[in-house]
Design a protein around this nucleic acid. Structure first.
Lengths: 196, 196
DNA sequence: ATAATAAATTAATGTACATTAAGAAAGTTA
DNA sequence: TAACTTTCTTAATGTACATTAATTTATTAT
């Protein structure tokens, strides 16, 4: 399946589109290739695009003042990724967004999206739902981080995002869960002795 | 200043309103009194209102499976409070929203808000910005929780939300910061010996 | 295939925080 | 004002996790 088909299929999971609307939407999106480790957004950029991962894997992370990375999102094909904060407020990004594998994103510029909203109103509904989804995911994560141990969070992550665990190095999963790679390693060891 | 004036003044911090729009907006909001400890939203309710705190103080919290409370938001007059997740998706709330002091909220029902969007289009912009603001605040908090110690978070909280610290019991501040009241107490003791 | 690099594991030690339990202080109600 | 309830503090003990550093395993590049 080509990138355009992947994108349309993703949008049509939430809203239905006529043939004309499909064409109009695709007309606003452009593919962008990313090499492994290439950055889509660097800290202090202002994010101007909504990015759909058509192929590959991408992460977003925050770097604290001690130079430690804290992963906010891990995404693979079929996911949207951005620094929504920066995009929505048009202020400098606080995060980095970086390709993990060689990837392709389908992206649409803010100004282009404004036009699309006028010509294809249902697109506005789609993006409103996407942004809501981002909020909801973040809230769930905040709660989990406050109320569960690293072991519990890892177990939940593994069942909920099986496909992600395969695609990202373990130290990134550790960072996403908010622990060091060493500690995640020991959690995994412990679980391995218990299971089976 | 009466409750209606407080509400209008809050909205006009983000968008400007004609006299006619002001009247139209106020017509959709109704005051709701809350006694101390009274609940505005209980877990498993579906949240149907946007709530503006016109007087008093209100908190929202999550209760984990061990019965421990985790505070998500502390708000006083001039703030909006809700279980946005539940409101936006119309699914059962995962949180409680409860008055801390005797309070008054000005609230608008979802269906009423839909009407307001049609008659006063600028109101839609206002609420979009509010929801964005909620997302942004949550993201900042997620980052802080991942990268700072409790002591650092407390110092930041104290300078950023001086008015809140006065109004809520210390154990709620502790919960908001993600620590036990005992530990916050010891952090405060330590800071007191250092400062001055 | 070999070397070079990146990622994962292991183990020892350290620390930020939780838990428990008790008492002191402050706030509320009769 | 006393009695009660809620909140805050103190101190002892315990634990989930971080840090450091060395070793092994896997991946990438020449």
């Amino acid at each position: 399946m080509d990138y355009e088909a992947v994108l349309l299929s993703n949008i049509q999971q939430l809203v239905s589109l006529t043939k004309a609307e499909q064409i109009s939407i695709l007309d606003h999106f452009k593919p962008q290739k990313l090499k492994k480790k290439e950055y889509l957004i660097v800290k202090d950029d202002v994010s101007s695009y909504m990015n759909f991962i058509a192929k590959g894997s991408i992460r977003s992370f925050y770097m604290d003042d001690q130079g430690r990375e804290h992963i906010l999102q891990l995404g693979i094909e079929g996911w949207w990724i951005n620094d929504l904060y920066s995009y929505l407020t048009q202020t400098p990004a606080k995060h980095y967004v970086q390709a993990v594998e060689e990837s392709v994103v389908m992206r649409i510029h803010r100004s282009s999206l404004e036009n699309l909203y006028n010509t294809v109103p249902v697109s506005e509904r789609f993006f409103r739902l996407k942004i809501q989804g981002g909020y909801i995911a973040l809230q769930e994560r905040t709660i989990l981080n406050m109320s569960q141990t690293a072991e519990e969070r890892y177990i939940e992550f593994r069942t909920k995002y099986r496909s992600l665990e395969q695609r990202f190095p373990q130290y990134m999963v550790a960072s996403y869960l908010g622990v060091t790679p060493e500690f995640l390693s020991s959690v995994r060891k412990k679980l391995a002795t218990i299971e089976y």
